[in-house]
Design a protein around this nucleic acid. Structure first.
Lengths: 216, 216, 216, 216
DNA sequence: GATGAATGAGCATTCATTCAT
DNA sequence: GATGAATGAATGCTCATTCAT
């Protein structure tokens, strides 16, 4: 059958492809259902109902809805973290970092939105629901650490970094939701706009607290 | 049946008092359970188990746990809205309003926390879960309107009030959660502190956007 | 309501009667199903299918099929143990005891059979299935103890009482099954017959092992 | 298909050998699992998990676990029946036959135990569970017939051979279980011992019923 | 109005069995 | 013939809701 004479890429068997497709189908369905119903309210049945698979098949791929959720979370984090790393590495100042991280986050949200297009998102789109998954908390912790690093480097006095980070995240999160739920037009433009707004807000907001903040 | 024949005093019937007491018992139990288990995870059974009523009795007072939840939300709002009204009426400027509203919100959170004391609060204290109940959204809308009013009065240019409100609410919400989950000491002091932080953040944050903002 | 003026027996409410009836219905159904299908093979659904109750109702009465089974076993033991006690107390010799215990056991089997009448008993009828329930083992242990006591009293040498008891129980069990599955006639007569056979077998069987055995 | 063109030697094809090996692997695994889990509790999955075969392969060899079980039972019987035949042929009297058959049975039990060694045997070892498989019943029927033959030859009066056989089998079965579950020492010795016990029991037990019984 | 047992739909999960590869 | 993923019926169990008492 699969006699590939010069085939550079080794053709992956039908089986493998089917498996991958099924796994993906479950993940996609789960993402939608989580987004629509919320994590707690969705049942495994809801998820497989969103595929053309049989109920039992679900368990060939995941042990529980928790596991699907984690997979989705991991997916998200895997997408987001590298972007954040980029920002961290190239940022030369606190201002730089904030601006870059905010933009990365909004960009990520927009990408996620596009992926989940056509759903009624009653919940935060990032992965679906409560953003307080361990993975997302890890992301936030990362950001917190970054902020602390940059603040320390820049010699910010005795700012309560927990509060500061919380505030920054609050701004980003709420503006992000706001942005996503707008029906509007050009994506790039919106991102620019909101990023500017958020960055300005945060940096001005902490001006008194940190020496040498430059809010251009 | 229980017709009291000679009752001289108008006597607010035993019945009525019992009814109110039962309703309250359910609400109190529900508040605890929601706080401990979260909305989705709590069952009607969990709630009535927290009272000395029978399961069927629940349905004399509420149609579903959703309804109890709404009642709790309404309770919260009922508690909070007057405070906000006070703030609105006495505030003489945008700065004033923000500062007052923020403080009112944090105060409210702390009160809620105290009410639910002794529970392991695994969820946001306001009523339990996702704060996006219609009622809470109403509160936020109220705040949004207030902000717009104040901004209009003060002649703020073409600020995107939706973004601005979102950002303010984000700051308040996230800092509020942060504050509540801290184990700390003197309540009054903490509220002062966080209120100062949040207010400063927001007002400085919007400085560029609004003419005549006074950040003391 | 239930105004019983001179009522000697306090009329038990409809509710109580219904509850008892349901519990009984489940037990009866379970006894039949266990007898027909065996313990492992019967499902809770099988049991309630044998009643006119809904599936959920089962769990108002029992936590699992294990629990029903235990209840049935307890029932059996409760029926049987007093008879054995009688035998133990009135027996004046080992011979006496064996003969009485055997008869009691066969009588008990016949009673059980009548209760389970009309079923195809594919399994041992005692309670239904594997007789090795803890309760039944307790009964056997009781018998074992009794036998040891009587043997000691009568000065039997160094007989291996474990083997002896096993053999006696084997005879009783197998003959019991045999007796129960016979379609025959007068119950009392059959019991007399089988009891005589079994008793004779056992007592003669151990004659060499025990001094002073009288096998008339 | 596997046409071996030049094959000089008759070569019992690889295929055939593989097939036999697979079948055996399944049987061995099944024996262990049945012994450990009991018939009802073991699943086909459990069985193939004990081999290095795929689940589907199971059905190339057996239609269901019932069929494996029967195969195992047949195996057991196939092992046991010849021994019984020997006994039957060489026995010169009822006493002889009983003694020989009993010993054969106990020996067989011990062999089975050894085969299943290292497992936690929670069930009767013969094949696993309730010994009342058709095959085992056939064995018992054979014994019953033998006993009747010998009794007839020896001119035993109007003994109820059904009862007699039942009693004998009861003794053997119960003592067999007892013996197997003992942790003890030298196998040969134990078999001698229990055989003596059982034989003595049975023969003495029927002494009154049969003329000319010699209980040495 | 209070009670609490009955109900039965619904959920997570397992497992024998099939069948494309 | 071997494989192992897909299937969907079946099971144990929970829980919102109803309703006779």
């Amino acid at each position: 059958m699969s006699k590939t004479f010069i085939a550079a890429k080794p053709e992956t068997g039908k089986r493998e492809r089917a498996k991958a497709a099924n796994r993906d189908a479950i993940l996609v369905a789960a993402r939608h259902v989580f987004a629509e119903l919320g994590f707690e309210a969705t049942t495994v049945r809801d998820i497989i109902r969103g595929t053309d698979l049989a109920s039992g098949t679900f368990y060939n791929y995941f042990k529980s809805k928790e596991e699907v959720f984690e997979a989705l979370a991991r997916q998200s984090v895997t997408q987001f973290r590298p972007r954040l790393q980029d920002v961290r590495k190239t940022a030369t100042s606190f201002e730089d970092y904030i601006s870059g991280a905010i933009r990365a986050y909004f960009q990520f949200l927009m990408d996620s939105k596009r992926t989940n297009q056509a759903d009624d998102l009653h919940h935060i789109p990032l992965v679906g629901v409560r953003v307080d998954t361990p993975e997302m908390q890890a992301v936030f912790q990362e950001i917190r650490n970054d902020i602390e690093d940059f603040l320390a480097r820049q010699g910010a006095g005795d700012v309560d970094t927990e509060y500061l980070t919380a505030a920054a995240i609050g701004v980003a999160r709420e503006l992000g939701d706001c942005m996503v739920s707008r029906k509007t037009g050009d994506e790039g433009q919106i991102i620019d706009q909101v990023t500017a707004f958020a960055t300005n807000m945060i940096l001005n907001g902490v001006r008194d607290l940190i020496k040498d903040i430059k809010t251009e």
